[in-house]
Design a protein around this nucleic acid. Structure first.
Lengths: 194, 194
DNA sequence: CTTGGATTTCTAGCACTGCTAGGAACAGGA
DNA sequence: TCCTGTTCCTAGCAGTGCTAGAAATCCAAG
C-alpha cells in the first residue's frame, strides 16, 4: 500500500506546514493575527482542513509551544555548556532564558503564558518541555544549599525568571533596569537561602 | 443647577455599578464570561451605555484592576503590620500576595496578567497601584544588602511571587509544593545576594 | 476507458464577540 | 403644549472559532 503511505506522508507534511505557518504568523504579527481563516489562507487550504489535523486552535498553539520548548532547550543547553563555573552557568542560563523570551515573545507566550491544555508538571509532559526544565535544573543543582530540594528550587528560579520577563513585556516593569533585576535574581539564588 | 448634579451623581453611580458587575461576573465565571452584552444585561441597560462610560471593554477591565490594587494593598498592609521582625514581614507579605492571587484569580489576572493600557511603571500610575508596590517595598527594604537598589530588589521579589502564582495557576507548576516554593523564594531574598 | 464508491475538501452557515451609526424616547424650559 | 437637546436603544457591521452537508477528487473494479 504505497499510496496509503504517500498520503500519510503528505498529511504529515501539511500538519508541519500548519504549525510552521502558525508560528511564523504569531512571531511576525502576534497571536491576535493568527485566526483560523488567516491560517487557512496561509497554507492555501480551507478552514475545515485545520480541524482534520487539530482539535482546535488551542491544539495548534500547543503544537507551536512544544516546538518552542525544543528551541528553548537547545539555547539553554548552549548557554550552559559554554559557561564555566557553577555560578556562571546559573547566570548564563538565566540570561539565555530571558533573552529567548524577549527575542521570541509570541513563542514564549504560547509556551508559558497563554492558557493551554498541555500537560506540564506531570509524567506525560512532552519531552522538549522536560528537556528545557532539565537544563535549568542542571545549573540550579550545583548551587543548591544543603538539604534544599533541587526540583523545587529549580521551579522557584524558573518562576523568578518568568515573572521578570512577563511583567516587563506587559509594561508592568520598566525595561531599562532589566539587566540589573536579572542580576539580583541570579545573585540571590547563587548565594543560597537560609 | 441641582438637576445637573443629580444627573452626574446617577451617572457616577451607574459607572460604579458597571465596574462592580464586571468584577463580580469575572470572579464568579471568569473573564471569558464577561461580554459587553452580558454586562449590559447585568446592569439592566443596553450595550452602548457601556461605551458612554468607558472607551471599551479594556477600559472597564482596567477600572476593575485599579480597584483590585486597592484591595491588594490593604491586604498586604494588614499582613505587614501584623508581622514582627523584618524577615517575618517579608514572608507575611509574600504569603499574603500569593494568597490574594489564589483567592481572587480573575481580579489578579486583570491586574497583572491580561494586557492592559494602564500606566504601570511611570509617575502617572494609579495611586492604588503605587500603594500596593509600596507595601512590598516596605518589607524588602529592611532585608536589602548593602548597596542594593531597594526599588529594583522589590521589583525582583515581586516578579518572583508573580511567577510562582501565575505558573501554578496555569497548571505549569504543581499545586502541592506551593508553600515550599514560596518558602524558598522568601528565604533566598531574606538571605541577601552576593 | 468508464463507472462506482469512498475519501478528501470546500462552501455556507451558526452562534458568538466588541463596537457603532442613526433613529426613538425622554427630559426640562418656554 | 410645544420645542430642543440629551439620553438611550434597536439594529447592524465585521470579525471570531467551529461545523454540517454538499461538492469535488481519487482509486480500484468492470
Amino acid at each position: 500500500m504505497s499510496i496509503q503511505k504517500r498520503r500519510e506522508r503528505e498529511r504529515a507534511e501539511r500538519e508541519r506546514l500548519i504549525v510552521t505557518a502558525a508560528r511564523d504568523l504569531a512571531e511576525s504579527e502576534g497571536w491576535d493575527a493568527v485566526t483560523t481563516r488567516r491560517l487557512a489562507a496561509e497554507i492555501e487550504y480551507s478552514q475545515p482542513v485545520l480541524y482534520s489535523h487539530f482539535k482546535g486552535k488551542g491544539a495548534i498553539m500547543a503544537a507551536v509551544a512544544v516546538q518552542g520548548c525544543a528551541d528553548l532547550a537547545a539555547e539553554l543547553r548552549t548557554a550552559r555548556t559554554a559557561a564555566d563555573g557553577t555560578r556562571e552557568a546559573l547566570a548564563a542560563v538565566g540570561r539565555a532564558y530571558a533573552d529567548f523570551a524577549q527575542r521570541r515573545p509570541a513563542l514564549y507566550d504560547a509556551m508559558f503564558t497563554l492558557t493551554t491544555d498541555l500537560p506540564f508538571a506531570t509524567a506525560e509532559a512532552p519531552a522538549p518541555l522536560k528537556e528545557a526544565f532539565g537544563e535549568i535544573l542542571a545549573v540550579v543543582e550545583p548551587v543548591a544549599a544543603e538539604g534544599e530540594d533541587t526540583g523545587l528550587l529549580t521551579e522557584t528560579y524558573w518562576a523568578g525568571l518568568h515573572g521578570l520577563v512577563t511583567l516587563m513585556r506587559s509594561g508592568r516593569l520598566p525595561k531599562r533596569a532589566h539587566e540589573e533585576r536579572l542580576g539580583l535574581l541570579i545573585g540571590h539564588f547563587a548565594a543560597g537561602g537560609g
